[in-house]
Amino acid sequence: MSSPVDYTAIFIQFIVAMGFVVTTMVVSHNAGPKRKTSDKLEVFECGIDSEGNARMPFSIRYFLTAILFVMFDVEVIFMYPWAVNFKALGAAGFYEMLLFVGTLLLGFIYIWKKGALKWE
């Protein structure tokens, strides 16, 4: 169904988008005034000097969310081919997917009960 010409069009769109962004960057770099002082080039902090490096350890919950996302996103991607061929697979396909989603839900309930989704 898709032909190479379709992907060529996407590539052209990519070039147009890149062209716009690069032009904007170059123009804005050259158009604005350049009166830089050391105070201006410091990172922003509310009226006081910035303390230390910003790249500090942060809450483990964000990391946990990212890990869970990777797992569940892969599951969602597995469901796409099933959904596309859904009518061709018939009832057997539905039962097989019930098994798959059932396993997925078990894992989901497990992380829920473990408190991985709690943010308080």
Binding site: V43, S50, A54, F58, T65, F69, D73
Partner: peptide
Amino acid sequence: SNNKYALLGAIRASSQMISYEL
């Protein structure tokens, strides 16, 4: 940016966006 506010904002944003993508 190496700014604490920016980093927190970015972490929040990515965490939120990936969560809702599912």
